[in-house]
Amino acid sequence: MRPAPFSYHKAERLDQALALLAEFGEDARPIAGGQSLVPMMNLRLARPSHLVDINALDLDTIELRSDHLHIGALVRHERYARESLIAQHFPAFAEGVEWIGHPTIRRRGTLGGSISHADPTAELPALCVLLGAEIIAQSAEGSRRIPAAEFFISAYVTSLEAGEMVTGIDLPLPKGKSSGAFEEFAERSGDFAIISAGVTLEHDGRAITDARVVWSGVDLAPVMAERAGDLLRGKPLSAPEAEAAAQAMSAGITPLDDPMASAEFRHSLIVELTQRALTRACEKAMQAS
C-alpha cells in the first residue's frame, strides 16, 4: 500500500510549525522521524491532508533544569543510551528504551513521535507514566503541561488537541536514593511487546521506602499498579519478597485477551516480569549503597 495524497510543509521554526498546525487543525500532523506515522499512512490507517515536517526545529536538547530532566521531542531514540544524566537518574528509562524497535528505527524515531503515536505496547508511554513525566504540548495559543497519567487515553488516543504538538517532556528528578528496572517480553527482538513491566524504587540503603510499578500490554494505555507502594514499603532490599508482591499487586487485573496472547498468559507474564524487575531494581540499589 501507499499513502493517500497530502500536502507537505517544511517548518524551519517552531512558531511556523505551530501556525501551520493551527491553520490546518485536525487535517494536519507533524512529522519527525516518521517511524510510526508513515507505516500508519502506508497502511492508510492515517490519512492526514497536511504533513508539517518538524525535523529542522531546535527541539533536541537533553538537560537538567532545576528539579527535572528535560528531553526535547526531537531527541532520537539512539541518543538515550549515550546520555549519562539518564543512566544516572532514571535507570528504568535507560533499560526500557533499549527495547524500542530496531537499530535503523532507533536512529530515526523520536521521543515526541512515540509519545504522540501512543501505541499501547510502546515503551516510552509506559516510562512516562512510571516516572511521573509532564508532557509539554504547544500550540499557536501557548503551551500546557499534561501529566503523563492523563495524556495517554487509549490505543493511539492522547489528550493532544488539534493544533497542538509535543515539544518535550520533563522527568522529575528522584528526591532521595532511587533505583529502577524494566522488563519486557516480545516474540522477537524489536517486536511489539506482549507485556512490559517497569519499576522504580526509593530506598534508604537498606529498605524500600516507596515503589511504583507500571505495565504495558495490559490495557489500551499504560497501567499503574495501584498497591505497589503499600505492598513494598518497608521491605528490605536484600529480601523484597518480589514474587508475593507481584502476585498481590496484579490480583484483580484482567489483561487484554487477543490472538497475540491470552489474558491468562499475559497475567503470568505480568507476575514474572514484575518480579524480575523488582528483584533487579533491589540488587542495583544494594550495589549502589
Binding site: Y8, I31, G34, Q35, V38, P39, N42, P103, T104
Partner: peptide, 27 residues
Amino acid sequence: CAHGACGACTVHVDGVPRLSCLTFAVQ
C-alpha cells in the same frame, strides 16, 4: 513490507542507514 518491519528497503541517506519505505522523497 512497506511499513518498516522487514528492512529490505534500507538505503543510506547522507551516509546513515534509513528505511526508504518510511521516508518521503520530498524530505
